[in-house]
Write a protein that binds this DNA or RNA. Structure first.
Lengths: 356, 356
DNA sequence: CTGAAAGCGCTAACAC
DNA sequence: GTGTTAGCGCTTTCAG
């Protein structure tokens, strides 16, 4: 294995093989119109000189870089990094490279420099993997956002003329709440994520709707806002117990916060799930090892990234080959319920414990 | 905000401003030798046309891309993504873009295509952020690895003629074990990470050494190997209790596994920390909310990324400006102890609880 | 201070 | 089949 590769130029290969650069170009692009003889010779020289074509020069002339821009935020958290993980493998498989940018904050307002950096490097498309928070999508509407390249947005409210890929958080919340209702809990509270997050609002909305449809009340005091962190839930759950003394179960908007809820509830002497049922969201690997193991909603982050890459490339290639342009569309992926002990009050029926 | 930018060329700007392309080039590169008048005019046109220079064309001619290649693996786990997080912000600050590659497995053998992809895109340097596992560093020695560009390796055993940046895992293990000794535990076991990982071996080695120096035995049965996951520790700790019935404390090689240890120990009726002291490694945000809160070793992942980027750029720029070349060196960063309840058997003295 | 010519490494369009 | 010419968008000589 020798990595000197990449330093020889097409010219050197050409003269070493006694042909023109054009012929070398034909060989490396696997064009048919080269005599078997010449091809062999050129390939030999290429191997010898460890020649690798410059993707840069190619991008410049082809006006196509086979590179995608990925914009993310909060990479230190498990959600964004799982998404990025799936994007890298899908992109690799499709033969695309990734130019990565991370916003310093979720609600960063000034995204123009990000776009400029990406565009000046001629990315073919962009995956905007920053969750919709506060006003951080305003610029989508502003002026003529007529990028010549496709963008796919992740974790964003569906919108006309824009491609989005998201987990169906509303559905997730419904499944969680319905599950608690099936377990015959009567006083279902909610600890939400930060409500400037679209995803947090969706989860909360479905909790409310599910309760109302079942004939229960969902009052404001039955819900307390957290900020996704265990630390925030530590305080939120105290407040919830105060505001809603009858509470007998809680739908917690993510697993990190659910961990703190379990911890506080146990200290107060509640038995879980007998006195207090708990359902989380995310299915982080550790949630199977909480005490008790946590019932939760599983998001398929892997599919999110894969679909996002596929959509982006589909749009790129349709525009490029003069095919019928692919219309932007919004894709929602269904999450699933993982039942563990923290919510299993009725031991009969559909008990379905999963420890893995 | 308008993102059409990037589509006008330097030629168009030049003719619109009635100057040559060189003059435009001088303006965008802030060269002094342009009359204030011309400069103003050109800048006006640039703004009007929303012209942005093509980083691609620049890289080609300057033989300098201001782009770093980052190779990672296991992004879905918290460690690698925290490291990447710090790399992105440090690179951004230094004005470098990032080309991201993720290996499908930690011990991927065939890294040549990765290098080729990076080199063909003319990265100025590479940060190899894949932990040293098994034989996945063999190629470093093979043949003439004379890349013309600098590489900095993360989480790797220091080695001649190579730049590495790592957390001092050995020191971390010492601190953890010494802490348990200070708390007067007499039978300190270890649940290690997978021993093909260099970092896992370091943590284990220091546990052994610290015990021996204190006059205790560190027998093979006192240690069980896990694979970093909670699931693996679930089984490992059962085995440890079997092999080492007297065990009164455990240094667990990461927090995820420590969570499972707490869970199993509690089920068996052990009181923590009275009957069993536990120290983890990593200080994940949730560890403050385990029951009981977990004493752990804090790695400063943030500094790792920052230092890695700085080292890489230092090497790039020294080679470029004809400065004295920067010698490769190995940097180790000291981790720190975060004391929480899981190890605090002696309530006197230096009790120093931290819940945050 | 400014412009003309050359070229980074490659490929598209045309010759032969 | 193969070579020639031109040029992607920019910067670097070097004149003037």
């Amino acid at each position: 294995m020798n990595f000197r590769s990449g330093r020889a130029t097409i010219k050197e290969v050409a003269s070493a093989a006694g042909v023109s650069t054009q012929t070398v170009s034909r060989v490396i692009n696997e064009r048919p119109d080269v005599s078997p003889d010449t091809r062999k010779r050129v390939q030999g020289v290429i191997k010898e000189l460890e020649y690798r074509p410059s993707a840069l020069a190619r991008s410049l002339i082809r006006q196509r870089s086979y590179t995608l821009g990925v914009v993310t935020a909060g990479l230190r958290h498990i959600g964004p990094s799982r998404t990025l993980n799936s994007i890298t493998s899908a992109a690799e498989e499709a033969g695309y490279s990734l130019l990565l940018k991370e916003l310093p904050r979720y609600d960063a307002e000034d995204v123009a420099p990000i776009f400029q950096a990406l565009l000046s490097r001629h990315v073919d498309g962009i995956i905007w993997a920053v969750p919709q928070v506060g006003e951080n999508r305003n610029w989508v509407n502003q002026q003529s956002l007529d990028l010549k390249i496709p963008i796919v947005y992740l974790a964003m409210e569906p919108k006309e003329d824009i491609s989005t890929v998201s987990v169906d958080n509303y559905l997730g919340g419904r499944i969680a709440t319905s599950h608690l209702l099936e377990q015959e809990y009567q006083h279902i509270g909610h600890i939400s994520g930060p409500l400037d997050w679209w995803e947090a609002r969706e989860r909360m909305a479905s909790w409310k709707d599910a309760l109302k449809e079942a004939g229960f009340e969902a009052r404001d005091e039955h819900c307390v806002e957290g900020n996704w962190s265990s630390a925030s839930a530590f305080q939120a759950v105290e407040k919830l117990f105060e505001q809603y003394p009858d509470v007998d179960s809680i739908f917690v908007a993510n697993d990190q916060m659910a961990l703190a809820v379990i911890q506080v509830a146990s200290q107060k002497g509640f038995r879980i799930p007998e006195d207090l049922g708990i359902v989380g969201f995310d299915n982080i690997p550790e949630s199977a090892f909480f005490s008790p193991p946590l019932t939760t909603i599983q998001q398929d982050q892997y599919t999110v990234g894969k679909v996002a890459v596929e959509e982006t490339i589909k749009m790129i290639e349709s525009g490029w080959d003069g095919l019928a342009p692919v219309e932007p569309r919004s894709i929602k992926l269904a999450p699933t319920l993982v039942v563990r002990q923290s919510s299993l009050r009725l031991k009969n029926g559909k008990k379905e414990v999963d420890l893995a």
